[in-house]
Design a protein around this nucleic acid. Sequence first.
DNA 1: CGGGACTCCTGCCAGC
DNA 2: TGCTGGCAGGAGTCCC
Length: 295
Amino acid sequence: MPELPEVETVARGLRPVMESRRIVTVELRRKSLRYPLPRDFAARLVNRGIRSVGRRAKYVLVNLDNGEALLIHLGMTGRLTVLPASGGQRNLGEFYNEEAATANPAGKHDHVVFGLDDGTRIVFTDPRRFGAMDIVPEGGEESHPRLKDLGPEPFGNGFSSAHLAGRFRGKKAPLKAALLDQGVVAGLGNIYVCEALFRSGLSPKRRAGSLARTASVEPRLDTLVRHIRDILEEAIIAGGSTLQDFAGADGSSGAYQQRFLVYDREGEPCTKCRKPIKRIVQSGRSTFYCPACQK
DNA sequence: CGGGACTCCTGCCAGC
DNA sequence: TGCTGGCAGGAGTCCC
């Protein structure tokens, strides 16, 4: 499931392929993904030069030479595959089942294909269709409905213990839910929230507001901020190195999954205290944590 | 308005 | 062996 590090990895992979190229064809195989695509989607992209490729939260932003930007969200199962003109392929993020994708090469779930002026094609595949695309008008990054309410980037100056304290103040929602809220901090998903809370020794069940009441909890928020940054950075590094090995069809992008300390480890011994990792459900999602270590 | 429940979608897998 | 139900979850919507 693509969270910030996976999306960052995809953006970095697209950069050398797309930057300073021109989009010459846009093939739409369905009218909508998660949401309907703009009626003039293809027309606004064709013949546009690509200035840069960036990321905001879990969105890839392809910045065009007219100031507009192509916005891509990979949802749960979205994939971008680069097909060079010379043949072969290179996957940019395989967040679904490797075997299933390999067993289904016919392109049943290939929804959008971009053609570049050097013959490269970029295929967007998304079996579950939780992904989305849109076009952000020039200067519209602050006002676009999908972007305007996003919280600060975890690596930016806007993300700090003071910011979290402000956002948590009076909040009754559990810490887990608060950190999944993209308006509090952008880019975290289920896996990295579980991991960051474990490293920080904070219970996912604790009320977010309990971390904002007094100055005495500020060090705990500092710790949380540091761990969120660390874990995202490690995942980006792991994803980046994975991507380099991804030229072949049999490459696996799951290398960093080995690093999870609590996620999907129900019943396994905690790496700190050896007591079993517990799984609970919060707002319909699995939470994995160590009841002994996380308070 | 905050917060929880529900919804979308498809593939996988455990269990019968 | 084949079917089925439950589960996966990002994020928007709906309702209390």
